[in-house]
Design a protein around this nucleic acid. Sequence first.
DNA 1: ATTTATTCCTATCAAATTGGTAGTATTAAT
DNA 2: ATTAATACTACCAATTTGATAGGAATAAAT
Lengths: 145, 145
Amino acid sequence: MISKKCKYAIKAVLYIARKSEENRPPFAAEIAENEHIPLKFLETILRELKNNRILLSKRGKMGGYVLLKKPEEIKLMEIIRIMDGPIALSPCVSLNYYSPCDDCNEATCMIKKVFEQVRDVTLEVLGGSDIKMMVDKEKELRQAK
Amino acid sequence: MISKKCKYAIKAVLYIARKSEENRPPFAAEIAENEHIPLKFLETILRELKNNRILLSKRGKMGGYVLLKKPEEIKLMEIIRIMDGPIALSPCVSLNYYSPCDDCNEATCMIKKVFEQVRDVTLEVLGGSDIKMMVDKEKELRQAK
DNA sequence: ATTTATTCCTATCAAATTGGTAGTATTAAT
DNA sequence: ATTAATACTACCAATTTGATAGGAATAAAT
């Protein structure tokens, strides 16, 4: 399970991506209202995304947030790692947050082997899902109905 | 990430499966010592596995634990669900613990679409991994070195 | 220059979850 | 009866989660 914070973060990034095609950069209060996220909580999330080079912020009146990279270059994987840390089922199979097991023999441990498979297929999906694709497909789905 | 409790549970089940091929049913203290699991914590885990029809326990002197089902019929998936609950990244894509999202439109939400893919590939791996396979393969790996 | 609207920062907090521990009751073999 | 095991109940400390409060810093508009 991802945290609420992480889901808020994804929704915020998707919102900013959608709006940056059309209007001027949205500010936190606008995102909070439209996506039903507590404003103060959202502020800390946006700051975290900024500090991790997903967003760019502009301060002061008429400020707001924009994507730092092109939407096709932002993978869902990145956002989840920033907000929630490891994606893997166990630290011993985490690529970005690896830490060894205390007592199991990593050469023969079958838990590790299976969890490595899970990690690989998961990262294939999450690494293949970028913000542009998601915004585009969402638009399609909305029109299709 | 799965919890420590869940990893302990998997290790305990694997241990019981290994021993039931050879010796008489192991008891909690033996598992605890060999797998480095705090005894009292392990007891609650074993009870939970018993209550969820993975294990069978025998009380009193010379008691212990055995698998309730054949090892090839116990999937890793089951144990994880029992100990940690949902495997999915979000309640809205959970098969066994589904709960709808408050505000997102489930028909068009791309987070849901991607998370469904992750769920499917994950369950394919975890549903295809059973205790017999794991014990057998672990044995192979140990001999290979 | 002042006002206004925004992000940035720090501190705090309640509730839930995690990872246990303690003590005792119950059961069954010897 | 004694002994050795599981079953049950209750508790607990540390961490994480999901926030909230209050203001400082910044920049645009007037």
